[in-house]
Amino acid sequence: MERPPTVKILKFYPEKCNGCLECESSCSMIHFKTKNGGEQSAIRIFKKGNSYQIHVCDQRGLCLDMCPVGALTRKKNGIVWLDKKTCIGCQACVGFCPIGAMRKSDARIEPFKCISCGACVRACPEGALELVERKVDDIKEVVYHKQGV
């Protein structure tokens, strides 16, 4: 299979963020058809001091090699995609994600993650989010760990 050269990932401008969490609402609309945001959103914004912090998948793809049923693949556009129908809900990817960006909501057994769809970018009233193109080779992490390392 051809390997996608680039992928779009989210870039966050904390100085523009006003903490309205419209991004989270729009994200949970995509994943769960609710405006709840919070644990049903793949993008999370947290207040840190006087500023804000983003917590979201950066498409590095370490989870790809964790999936026992091949539910996780890198799509043609470079994003790491979880196929709900194939997923058997084992949570291996959730447990092993080094940055905690593979999420699990109480609403269903299969996890979910950012798919760089841009809904949050469009929903942000302040323009604090942007999708930027990166080379897959620059962001992907290959091996979780080797013996004794």
Binding site: Q91, A92, G95, F96, I109, Y144
Partner: peptide, 12 residues
């Protein structure tokens, strides 16, 4: 899912 994920993290 909670206890399973906890153990996955421990193993990780």
């Amino acid at each position: 899912a909670q206890i399973g994920t906890k153990l996955h993290k421990e193993i990780r």
